[in-house]
Amino acid sequence: MSGLTFVDVCSGAGGLAHGLERAGFEPRLLLDEDEAAVTTLRTNRPRWNVLHTDLLDFDPAEHRVSYDVDLLAAGLPRVKSSATVGRADSSTEERLLEAAVYLVHAIRPRAVLIENVPGLAHSDEYRRLRDFARAELAHLGYEFSWFVMNAVDFGVPQSRKQGVLVAVERHRARAFRPPTATVREPTTVGAALGPSMASRGWRDAARWAAQADRPAPTLVGGSKNRGGADLGPTGAKRTWATMGVNAHTLGDTVPGPEFIWDPELGRDNMVKITAEQAALLQGFPESWAIAGLKTARYRQIGHATPPPVGEALGRAFAEALSGDLEASAAG
């Protein structure tokens, strides 16, 4: 499949964009307000058109965004689960979601993809946002659906559920089918990180990998207003501890030959995951460089859409949109 194009907003570290690229899409424009994320995008794909700006300040007319775009994609910051949802003093995350929907008016893509928290797909707490999206997109001639995907079903060594909004122009909508799982068995943390854990000669790498025999809990990137990086809330930390991992911090390097791994002695004798290893748990290829200091790198990784999930969604959109491309080529 070729000839498909997309605009990606709130692009972050490029997980969704990279996945769409693997599915055959070419970006017309990517944008993000975070300087480190913009550097990440430009470092990995120097030819991509990357704009350093906030979606809330973005004017598509000023930047001459083409109207001939197949997909508008948005891996937005997580809308908070709180009693404030639906109130007049909406959060920045809510306003970004609304801005992404309003952007459809300006760009008029053939399809729309918005990824966020799983509750957005079905929870009553987010009904106002669903009703808003439905009304706006129906008015523009799109049919849409919400569904939930788990990254672990697509080869990502992490249990990570995501709520997905898919909107397709009405006359193409029936051709879209939500992605189905691409793996039968989940990839474990040990399988994903075993080689890197052994890369500096750590003698217990194989024994550790055998104990890390399940997918990772959901990685949480945290916010800019929060302190140092860790691997998630209390429940996630407990799960990591059963795999002999100290989830209260990130490591600077993988263990060397001298490291003694003995979880019964406490955190100091548990292994630490590095930011680069966290990227592997998120489904990024080893070649994908994340810019910034350790905490900034982990924040980008934790907020990203896993590339294999983006690729699966991209292939589903490609199938739905391919009829137009084939008809155009025949003409």
Rank of each mutant, 00 (worst) to 15 (best):
P308I: 01
T295R: 02
L120A: 12
R207N: 09
V79S: 03
A209S: 15
P60G: 01
G232H: 10
D34F: 06
V156M: 06
R28Q: 06
R134Y: 15
R160K: 12
P257C: 05
S66A: 14
R95Q: 10
W261H: 07
T218G: 06
V85K: 05
V271P: 03
L30I: 06
P263L: 05
A198W: 04
A133R: 11
A212S: 05
F25G: 14
R28F: 12
A111Q: 14
R214L: 00
S2G: 08
A37R: 11
A23K: 09
V152G: 04
L51M: 13
G331T: 06
L120T: 12
A100W: 08
A181S: 15
D268Y: 03
G244E: 06
A121S: 14
A13K: 06
A206V: 07
A330P: 03
T182Y: 15
I114F: 03
G3M: 00
W240M: 01
P257Y: 08
R128P: 10
A279S: 06
V166D: 06
T253G: 07
W202Y: 07
S196Q: 08
W202K: 00
W146K: 08
V245H: 11
W146C: 01
A74P: 07
A320R: 05
W288D: 00
L71T: 11
S328N: 07
Q158I: 00
V156L: 04
F147V: 13
F132E: 12
R214W: 03
S199I: 03
R45A: 04
S81V: 07
L16S: 09
R184W: 11
L96V: 12
D124L: 14
Q211A: 10
A216Y: 15
E33I: 09
F6P: 02
K237W: 05
L293K: 14
N49R: 14
E26N: 12
Q162D: 02
